[in-house]
């Protein structure tokens, strides 16, 4: 800089800087606002493989004439009350009667969120997938509706959307021609809430938690009582366990 050159006046500099900042704010603010909206109000958290979500269903506490879990599931996910074999049903109450002794019991059955899910293996496009935290989901964007996962699932846990869908929960997107099933209320879980069925159960027959955490209530309970997996013979390592069957 030559000695004869005068530096710009500080006031002018401040004015220019202020104007630029204002212009930038006007230009960028809507974009930043959009990013904020897109990412939700909370900082995004990724599912961690350190966690494995699971559920313990206590058949000794589950009442045969209660279907609060089913109602809660249908309400939360905006599912119709299943009346026809073509209606979706993510969670259902199954009545069981021991063939030898006649002992009766009733349990909720849904996606068992297997560690080795048959539905994920057979899906041609990878739409059936397992999240890092063990939740088995369907990516509605790449499900082609072939229903091979429904053929493969040992639990009849998946439904095919046979008719156009109206009145959706925006957080639980559904669509005609795709396969769907229990998500363990992943949208609630990611907000720190329990699955709707667990919250609704009046008998505390459904215990939800992290199977990988030895100190979680579910892990402690699993250590304390005898539990079983549905079709344990298949070796799928289900995330849902049953007691009292």
């Amino acid at each position: 800089m030559s000695a004869g050159h005068k530096p710009p006046l500080p006031a002018r500099r401040a004015l220019l800087a202020g104007g630029a900042a204002a212009a930038l704010s006007v230009a960028l603010a809507p974009g930043i606002r959009l990013i904020e909206i897109a990412s939700g109000n909370e900082a995004p958290t990724l599912a961690s493989s350190k966690v494995r979500w699971g559920m313990l269903i206590d058949a000794t506490r589950c009442s045969a004439d209660c279907d609060a879990c089913v109602t809660a599931c249908n309400q939360e996910n905006h599912l119709p009350t299943a009346a026809a074999p073509t209606d979706p049903q993510w969670l259902r109450k199954v009545s069981l009667k021991d063939l030898k002794t006649g002992r009766s019991l009733s349990v909720p059955v849904m996606c068992q969120h297997c560690a080795k899910p048959a539905c994920v293996d057979v899906c041609p496009t990878g739409a059936s997938f397992k999240r890092a935290d063990g939740i088995v989901l369907v990516d509605r964007h790449i499900c082609i509706g072939c229903r091979y996962c429904m053929m493969a699932c040992p639990y009849k846990a998946r439904s095919f959307v046979h008719a156009p869908v109206t009145d959706q929960n925006p957080q639980v997107p559904r669509g005609k021609g795709c396969v769907e099933g229990c998500t363990l209320c992943v949208h609630r879980l990611d907000r720190g809430q329990l699955p709707a069925c667990v919250e609704a159960c009046p008998n505390q027959a459904m215990l939800f938690g992290d199977l990988n955490d030895p100190d979680s209530a579910i892990s402690q309970r699993l250590r304390a009582i005898a539990t079983t997996q549905a079709r344990a013979d298949l070796g799928l390592d289900t995330g849902v366990r049953y007691h009292g069957i």
Partner: peptide, 8 residues
């Protein structure tokens, strides 16, 4: 080992 029934 069980006979099952449901609305599904």
């Amino acid at each position: 080992g069980y006979a099952a029934s449901s609305r599904f």
